[in-house]
Design a protein around this nucleic acid. Structure first.
Lengths: 222, 222, 222, 222
DNA sequence: AATGAATGAGGGTTCATTCAT
DNA sequence: CATGAATGAACCCTCATTCAT
């Protein structure tokens, strides 16, 4: 897969909408347009400095537009978080379906997904971290994130368990490996967010591969 | 090591200061007191909802106090970030010095540090993530975090390299292992922040141990 | 006379209109429907909190409907005030025509009208007071109210003069009695608006009767 | 008593305050200053069009000043209503104390008070009616007004009862006379508010006198 | 050094009004 | 005639910052 910039990613929708007359976009389209604008703003200015005016301007619409469609800023942010969670889930499931056959191939594909440019995009990561930064004080954010995480963890653990059973690996628990794998992904995102220059996708991918190879040698040969 | 609560952690400083007459606390003590109050507020209300008024009230001082000592809110936050970075570094170095002998023992001690209650504290983590959430839009935060990360990465990589050399491990790069190790720590912090109930310190520690054991079997036997 | 609820009062009109197809109500009917909705809203939420959106919703029509029929909110309110003034005048004149014979009987009937449930209705009174509350700052309201008042005052004074002449009362001026009578009515409305529990229609009617009896003893015997 | 204009009435306080340095007025003085400004604004622009910005400007202070001292607009209005109620009560009680001896003299003095220029001032009346206009939809306003009214009604009824007992008047109830007297006052205020030109203080006073004379002839001779 | 009243810019939100359909 | 999405000015309120004390 080649490099999709963040811009390309969600502007595809927006430009389509923008071409329609201002007064004719459907409610759902308009909400999506505003969510997209919100993500752009959060990525550029940070969550704390993103105002509804910024979002409206980014969307090319008028001041009151967000309250018209989302009632409140809080709502907009909740739905934005839900959107990025859904968006990730879609990609995750897509990869899960298309890859394989076999648990090992699927596991590898999932790990690779998290380092793909469409995910490992500093603008997207900035949005994720912006929400994580408020998780402690906003129960709603925590709930949404938790539901998300639980799902991925379960899937990854199942795959690991399957591999362990198949390979009769000893001294390894599926849960432990799953914990390391999902954690390592999130941790790498942070590294990339903080040190984009120093971060190297290939090295990161290799590090993951080495780990898998070391822990499941039969399934991930050198 | 026994459980240090967050409260204990930084109230130790504050109470000492509070006992001094209000008017005689030195500039440095007062600044520290305000930084402590800032961390408490960020943990409780989130970065975006923490006002200078909140900080002042938390410190039991008056409205204008922060500007008096830090000139601006921006300064206060920068110095708060620097403080938590320094605080972590102190613990890190302390562990590095006291543990051992040997790279493996040191590495293990460092990994264990990150799961200790004094570090794995949701209030502290909330502060870290609050800053990381703004890293993309605040270059100053990024710089501070980057400097921090670079140091830990270097130390961990050195230890790994030493172990690899000593054990003549093949097909393993120190950089890759270091990347996984530091990443896994950050990722686990996120898990704990989001799902404190589901997170289990021991399992997490075991997962790390399994990893080390699998990759450096001679140095980390079962 | 039995109790007419406020609901009955103006819903009679509205239901008739509502039964017509939405698209065929005449301009006049639609305007009346909106005026009725306006009164309901003012009574329930107060003048300051009544929005055009509220009025439209109350009427079961769409957002922009008021501007379509009244051009502006100001117009709607002016016409609403004119409507309640006309509505009162209609009842007033009706009583004037049907009662009698004789000035005393008419005067008594008019005084009784102002305490009838169809008038002494807190929802209607709320509308009157809402407009009176803006009289000072809205010349248009003042003019409409003044025209109204002048008419009633003239009628009442004429009746009083007639009674005075007929009874050869000394030391009494028709104008003075008329002033007291019209004032007392408005004042009682205020009492009822403020203290509906404490207010007693019968006592109020008796108080008026005692007054008439004391000032015009021949015409209003015990 | 000679004519006190509304301006004179409450500017006496304000000018004193304004002379003090902006930063030194006591909290109580500042609140009073803002209440005065609020009354001016309500009288001039109406309750619905009075913004906190207007009040601040009228007081010669800055935008945020009202929220600093009253927390919310609602609070400001509640306290303003309470203030005019207290202000009236003070005058009422003062007259009650100073007049007499005898119930009749006191009653007459109280009735005269309500027609004095210091009370019968369109700007003040505009404020009263502005609040009465919202009584139906704002329970708090109703409560404050009710408490006020109850007190005056009780005092007036007591005086009437005393007169009735002393004069052995038959066919007259103190409650009824009190109702008429207090109502007539409020009704006259409305007349003056609506038709300042047509309203004549002397005629109004005479109308009240005629009434008293007619109902309590021994105590209020011609 | 410390206070806390005051400022005023800027935030989220509301709502009368417009206009394409 | 009627709709309702969209606008944008103006509202209330918050809060970083200033400054007289």
């Amino acid at each position: 897969m080649n490099e999709y910039s963040f811009r390309l990613w969600h502007d595809s929708l927006m430009s389509a909408i923008a071409k329609k007359s201002r007064r004719t976009a459907t409610r759902e389209q308009r909400k999506q347009q505003l969510i997209n604008a919100t993500m752009k703003c959060i990525a550029r200015k940070g969550m704390g400095s993103t105002t509804l005016g910024d979002v409206a301007k980014e969307a090319g619409l008028s001041q009151g537009i967000v309250n018209l469609h989302f009632e409140s800023k809080e709502n907009l942010l909740n739905e934005t978080l839900r959107y990025i969670a859904d968006d990730y889930k879609t990609q995750f499931n897509h990869v899960l379906d298309r890859s394989g056959p076999g648990a090992a191939a699927k596991l590898h594909a999932l790990m690779e997904l998290d380092l793909r440019p469409s995910i490992l995009d500093r603008r997207k990561l900035a949005v994720w971290f912006a929400f994580w930064g408020e998780v402690k004080s906003r129960p709603r954010y925590r709930e949404i994130c938790e539901a998300s995480d639980e799902y991925y963890d379960d899937v990854v653990r199942s795959l690991c368990d399957e591999i362990i059973t198949a390979g009769r690996y000893k001294n390894v628990s599926g849960a432990a490996v799953a914990t390391v794998l999902t954690s390592v992904t999130n941790g790498m995102w942070l590294s990339y967010l903080i040190s984009p220059k120093r971060f190297d996708r290939l090295s990161a991918a290799n590090a993951v591969d080495e780990y898998l190879c070391s822990i499941f040698p039969q399934h991930f040969p050198l």
